[in-house]
């Protein structure tokens, strides 16, 4: 009798959990990027074991990306337990967003280095990563500055994502308009959940 009942109970328990689906799985993928200090980063494996809050931005963005970065800072400020949580911002404008520019951006927004990483890389590698995450970006508005250099703004995906320690994206949100509380609640939902070890 027990042999029959036990599998049923396990099956019921599994069916009762609301484990969020895997949206993108980067568990077996690797992308060669660099951070704001020009240190090589293998993404996402170098963050293995951490939950990642990920935003996609470019530093010349005048409005939306800065709102998203502010949201990221708010999440880090409001998160009571920051153990095993890292914040990653990935640029979709690697041509202009060099490590030095990203370093300046971090300082401008007072993003703590122990929690935040700003990632850039070769254009092809960034495009490969963004494509696997379904993130779009394209040049929209071109101008020329006084030095004669071309400048531009971009149309882009507005998103914050939560990745689990196995490199799987579990939640995605409209980055600039989602209240930080929502993201924190979802993060805490999967942190330490028994189903999340598989």
């Amino acid at each position: 009798m027990l042999l029959i009942a036990l599998p049923c109970v396990v099956a019921m328990l599994i069916s009762c959990t609301d484990s969020p689906e895997v949206i993108h799985d980067l568990n077996d993928a690797n992308y060669n990027l660099v951070n704001q200090d020009s240190a090589a980063v293998d993404f996402p494996s170098d963050f293995e074991g951490n939950y990642l809050i990920i935003a996609y931005i470019y530093t010349h963005c005048p409005d939306i990306c800065n709102i998203t970065t502010a949201k990221m800072k708010n999440i880090s400020n409001q998160l009571q337990d920051t153990a095993n949580v890292q914040f990653v911002e990935i640029t979709f404008d690697p041509g202009r967003d060099t490590p030095a520019v990203l370093h300046d951006y971090m300082q401008t927004f007072k993003l703590p280095e122990r929690q935040f990483s700003m990632l850039t890389g070769k254009s092809g590698e960034i495009n490969r990563l963004l494509s696997s995450l379904d993130v779009e970006a394209e040049i929209a508005y071109r101008d020329t500055n006084s030095a004669g250099n071309a400048t531009y703004t971009m149309n882009h995906t507005d998103r914050i994502a939560v990745m689990d320690p196995q490199g799987r994206v579990r939640f995605e949100y409209p980055g600039s308009v989602t209240p930080p509380d929502y993201i924190i609640e979802d993060l805490n939902k999967i942190r330490g959940a028994w189903y999340d070890v598989f």
Partner: peptide, 18 residues
């Protein structure tokens, strides 16, 4: 700034534009 202008940010199908 070298240039200034009033712009509008908007979202369409998850894409942010100005």
């Amino acid at each position: 700034a070298e240039n200034a202008a009033v712009h509008e940010s908007y979202r369409e199908d998850g894409i942010s534009s100005m």
